[in-house]
Each structure stands twice: as structure tokens, then as C-alpha cells.
Design a protein around this nucleic acid. Sequence first.
RNA 1: GCCCCCAUCGUCUAGAGGACCAGGACAUCACCCUUUCAAGGUGGAGACAGGGGUUCGAAUCCCCUUGGGGGCACCA
Length: 498
Amino acid sequence: MTQPNVRVRFAPSPTGPLHVGGLRSALFNWLFARHHGGTFILRIEDTDRKRYDPEALSDLLENLRWLGLDWDEGPEVDGDYGPYFQSERLDLYQKYARDLVESGHAYYCFCSPERLARLRQEQQQRKESILGYDRHCRGLDPAEAADRVAAGEAHVVRLKMPLDGQTTFHDLIRGDITVDNSTQDDLILLKSDGYPTYHLANVVDDHLMRITHILRADEWISTAPRHVQLYRALGWEMPAIAHLPVVLDPSGKGKMSKRKKLGPGGREFPVHVRDFRAAGYLPEAMFNFLALVGWSYDDHTELMTREEIIERFSIERITPAPAAFNYDKLDHMNGVYIRGLAADDLADRLMPFLERAGFATDRETVKRIVPLIQERMKRLDEAPGLVDFFFVEELPDYDPALLIPKKLDASGAHVLLGQARGVLAEVSPFTQETLETALRGLAEAMGVKTGQLFTPVRVAVCGRRVAPPLFGTLEVLGRERVLKRIDLALEKLKAIER
RNA sequence: GCCCCCAUCGUCUAGAGGACCAGGACAUCACCCUUUCAAGGUGGAGACAGGGGUUCGAAUCCCCUUGGGGGCACCA
């Protein structure tokens, strides 16, 4: 059953590069909207002037588009409920803040940040069970307070929370959640610089933008009761709400770090979406994987197309439990998607990675190499390390001992490699098929195992033992370079013979 | 410290009282395939945090304990 009038939003704060956790929230909102044929809105919550990062917006838009999350209303597309930047809606928030003060639901507070800091410190020292604002200004005479405001005294606007009783709200994922009002303090709605806090801006905009469902991160649960009271104070109906489970770091301990990459075991884990891109994760793999962080379809289906996920997505199947971000599984899934790519497509996607590695490459060559490495990659950034020897004229120095296969010595390897050189000089055409036939024939003729013959050849042309399949490699390399490298290898072997 | 949320293999999860001596996936181990490495195939090990209830019957419902997470800003 779909509800086409569904309106959801992703409302990030442009304070830094987009984080995977944020992307997951965006994805779930987008999926919910697309599933219902509703509207997905992008709203920029740029109300924190201190943490504002001018580069964050382009990073955000670029990375949402990378994953294929298009928005129906928001930056660069506009819509009927704009503006979509909160910094352009200041008069609105100020108006509602004023209304709330006038209706007695909010009050002016003149406490200085210093006083609040001291208060907090004292509360902590005294190990008070309830921390938070002590409502010092709540009892001020409204007329007097208004005069002080008119006189230009610095102030904020705070919401009057009920002093007793309870607040309950219904979370679509967790059911009813109830808290005692005595544990809640009077949150700030309007800061002294005239900007709204998240709480006010969020509620005002969700209402004005006709948001029907709020899907936001877990960490907002604790403020939800105060949001409920804010809606009540404004006389508005609150949208349906669901709190998505947080994304934990790979160890499963602690929320995924926002700023630094963490690396248990020495490994560096990307957390910013742009870093996932740079590591060579495919957007389609990322999309599929991220959909499964906190949501599942059934007991066995994991690989799904974008369309299938849209079709199957539902809030009912979101788990309430926090989920660790499993990089191993992402890698695996990315490998599956890489293997599923058409060779041309993969070649195109590989180009930037090879260019960045400094290889003088061309698309045609890359297309020929792709079949050799396609099933050997989990991430695109592994490609350069796999194919470096294709893009140099001369191999970097390597240990001659690598040329010697099992059960042979240097002179034995020398003989085999010499014979192989003879064959490789003659084979025509110089293709994978003919090369394989010829070299296998040689191994048989010489009475050695194929591995014993192929190992020295592989090392001679690649400079290492672990490499892509030999015959295809030889073909792409071409006869000239192959023979040159073998000659060099023969010299190396000669030098260690005795 | 206080409030809130959560709790099935190492990790992600299926499970909405009997179909479960708990299924799938990643990782891991063994074997097969094989020119190395992969990929692929087969098989193995591996979990209902603990304790009380409710019930003829509990992974599934309730309570307590424990553990984990989140929050307690003029940040979102």
C-alpha cells in the first residue's frame, strides 16, 4: 500500500564532508519517498554559523547524486515550500519564537554562556541526577523581560517544558516512548545571534514544508519529547516519526567516528562518502549495502537492484538495534558488483584510478586488461597495484630467486626460461590461445609441470609471483616487451648461477 | 551520575508462541578446481547474554540483572 502524498526530508547541516551515516539516513528517506511515489526534500540546516563549512554543500550535493539520490525539492531544484536553506528563513523562526513568548509557551532568558557553563560544572560536581538549565529566567516578569529585550540586552528564547507529568510519542520503529517531564529542561529555541536552534528550525520547517514522516538518526530520540511539546505549543500536528538505528564503527563499539578514520588492525576505514568513492566503491554496491544497514528484506536476499529495493523497502522491516558497519562485507559486495560490470563499463570506471596512479594509459589498453583483473578486485583502487607492470617499459628490480620454481635451481630455471624464450619468439599469432598451446606443449616436451615452467615466465614479465593470468598478460604485453623482459631475467639468473 | 534506546553465530541479519536440536550472508577453516593470485564449487566450526515468571509449549510475551549504544551545548 503506497501513500503518494508522503513527504520526507533529509536535512543535513553543512559542517563538513558528508558522512556515511548521513548518507544512510538520506537513503532511507529517499527509499521511503520513492517507494510511496512521494516527495523527497533536501533541506540545508545552516543555522550554526560557527561550524559552517563553505565546501560542505557542494560535497553534499555531489555525493548524494553519486549514489543516485535525487531530490524533488531543495537546492538547485527549488520547489513550492522554499527557501530550502534555513539561513534564508530566519524571519520565520523569529516570528514563531515571538509568538511562543507571547502565548506564554516560551520565555526570554538572559543567562550568559558563562553562567550556564558554571551551572553545568556545579551540577556535575555535586553529582546531581538531573543536569540542565535551572530555569533561572523562567519566572521573570514577562513585561520586564520584554523591556530588557527592547533595550537590546542579549537574550535567547527558551521553551517552557511542563514541570511535571509525562510526554509520550509513538516511534514507528520502537513503539511508544515515554519520559518524565521532570527530566527535561527548557531548551533554547532562538540563539542570541537571532538564529534558531535545530529544535525550532526543524519543527517550523517540517510543519511549513508539510513533512509527513520524519526518519532521522537514533541520537535524536532524547530530544523528541521536547519536540513533541514544541508542536503542542505551536498548535501543530506532529509528523509520524521513526528513529533509525545508529551506525556503529566496525568493532561494534561506539558510533562511527565523524571526523577521523579509525583503523583497528592498522587498516584505515573511510567514513566520508567522498573517501568511499576515492577507494573505488561502486555507487550501486554502496546503495545495496547501505540499504542493508538496519533494514532487511527477508532471510536470504541481499543482492538487489535499486528498483527491487525501492519496491521492497518498508519501515516495518527496519531493525531498532544499532548496526556495526561491516567493511569486509561491503568489500565483498563491491567485488560482486565489479564482476557483474560489462568490460567497457569497468574500463571507463578504472581510467581515473589508473591516471591518478600516474600511468600513461589509454582506454583501449585498459579494455584489454580488464578481463585479466576483473575478478581479482574488490575495490577499484586495487587496480593500479594489479597492473603496474603493463605501464612501464622496464620492470623495477626484483629478487632473482623468485624466478626459480619449486624443485629447481637457478640453472634449471635458466634452461626452462631459455626454452620458453625460444617458443615465445616464434609463436604466431601472439595471442592468448596460441601462447597457451605452445607453452603447455613445451612443458610436456621438457617433462616439467606446467607450474614449473610458467612461474619463471610470469616472474620475468611481471616482476612478481602473484599476477593476473599468464597468457592474457603476455598477449597484452606484446612479443617485444616479453622477450626483452625474459632476456633480463635470463641475465639475472645467470648472475646467481654457480 | 541521570534519562532514553537496544540485546540471535566474531559481524550484518531471518525469526512477529509450536514449522527452530535456530535459516542466510560476510569473515574464518578444510577440500575440490587450477599456471600464481583471485573467482567458483563442496563441506565444517560458530549464536538465542543471565535469572525469574506467563503458557501445555518461548529466541519469540512480562519483570529483574548484566552488557552495549545514544543523549544530558546559544551543535546539528
